[in-house]
Design a protein around this nucleic acid. Sequence first.
DNA 1: AAAAACCTCTGACTTACGTCAGAGAAATGC
DNA 2: GCATTTCTCTGACGTAAGTCAGAGGTTTTT
Lengths: 291, 291
Amino acid sequence: MPIDPTSRIRRFNRAVTAEVGALDTSFLGRGRPLGAARVLNAIGHGRGEVGLLRDYLGLDSGLLSRFLRGLEEEGLVVTLPHPGDARRRVAALTEAGRREFSAYEALSNDRAAELLARFPKGEELLRAMDLVATALGRDRIAIEETDPRGEAALHCLTAYYAELGRRLSTGFDVSLSRDPEAADMMRPRGVFLVAVSDGLPIGCVGLKGKGGEMAEIKRLWVCPSARGLGLARRLMEAAESAARTLGITTLRLDSNSALTEALALYRRTGWVEIDRFNDDPYPDFFFEKRL
Amino acid sequence: MPIDPTSRIRRFNRAVTAEVGALDTSFLGRGRPLGAARVLNAIGHGRGEVGLLRDYLGLDSGLLSRFLRGLEEEGLVVTLPHPGDARRRVAALTEAGRREFSAYEALSNDRAAELLARFPKGEELLRAMDLVATALGRDRIAIEETDPRGEAALHCLTAYYAELGRRLSTGFDVSLSRDPEAADMMRPRGVFLVAVSDGLPIGCVGLKGKGGEMAEIKRLWVCPSARGLGLARRLMEAAESAARTLGITTLRLDSNSALTEALALYRRTGWVEIDRFNDDPYPDFFFEKRL
DNA sequence: AAAAACCTCTGACTTACGTCAGAGAAATGC
DNA sequence: GCATTTCTCTGACGTAAGTCAGAGGTTTTT
């Protein structure tokens, strides 16, 4: 009877293979082979360029070409030359293609919803799935510059504020804190970075500049399922290197003694403690780092 | 940017598909198509009967037959008539087949070990995988009678004692408790049941009889990743129905006030509190149920 | 003892997927 | 301006996998 780690992983593989297989089978229900369905869905998700499609789906150029022609004959897709480079082609869904795409989306969503409904501990299951997905896709975590008012940023910030509320003994109310202006966290004054794993935002950091040589690090957060992977450090390094490209020479940040992992990280990575430099009610630790 | 539950599940699917695909690819390295490799592995795992193989792998009888013949030609497998029914056939590995099977096992184990090594939070990942596997394979949880000294039972009991140690304010030392004799939890006096999900034991319960009409429920435990699925209830029902087949009319059990979920379950399912009936130092609640 | 049901195997066929070489059009380098 | 590189597409070919009908055994039923 297997109980060792490898057996547990292999049990997981078996369970998951069955689940994925079942989803594929339900996709077959629309009378189209899986390959063509995958292409249609990738186009629907915005991967119109043929080169992108090839990379994303890992297909041979000949095979992909055939799939595209098949979808064109079905009237679901049109391909046009790329505006800037006429060698390349871009595929787009027709009206019928969009309908077909939504049908696949619905199948996929239904399966997900059904799985959740079948399992009483929904949120716990989702957290476990996030953790596994992050672990498996670890090499695929990308750090991207984004608009601090965008959806990805908002998701991270909401989770960040909620966590502060739980961890600070005083609670946390954004409106009492000095909420950085969005423009201060966008080029040319600063940046806002999110870590994205397979489409899901799982961490963020803001660099808030005033146009001078001094800038502040704000809103460093990593989603619980992705902690312990050194992601916070990667985010901080990315923020510092962005700061350098903006001509910034000194970074500051404030933090709270309840956030012990963060404080440990700052101390490990060359930050030095300085005197209070603002009157924000929440922070009680202040750091500086010269680049 | 997707954050809703279905997107999270779909991200999980993508991550996991890539992982499973990578395992399949590594299986291809042994110069044999995937179908044949799956058959070989199923035989190695004890599914020798052709009918069983067909069901387990979901193959057409013609296709399976071809795979078997291919493996026979390679000298990895021999098929013999079924001892009791000459229409059926049973496949078995030859010496060379066993070697090849171990090579596949090694590949599988290596991949699992590598995944674990790559991820700093190993135990957490394993727990998440257990939870997901249990959720996906929920309909496949089987309750089986087993030897209370067997490996599956031991795994559950070790986890059970460890949990008691954590949860009882006094700690827990098995030797101080009245450890039921194994024979009292095997037919004809009692039974020991484990819940098995895809080969992994995830819960247990013992029915300890003395040969009379009275028996005791012992060692009810459900693995944390499988809680909230009503498994404890299923185990108790299975134990009760086993008790009925043994001619037992009254059940008793003792428990501890720290085990609140268990107490709630007993109260919900027709057990009534009675006076202390033993001098075991740990329990402080005593229940009885007439069948 | 004959009929019916059952199990595995074989041969013929189809489909999905993938590979490879090279053609044709467009962009880039010198 | 010409050679080289970069993309996409087409045609020819190969392999893995799956389907179907029926043959040839064995067992069960009546």
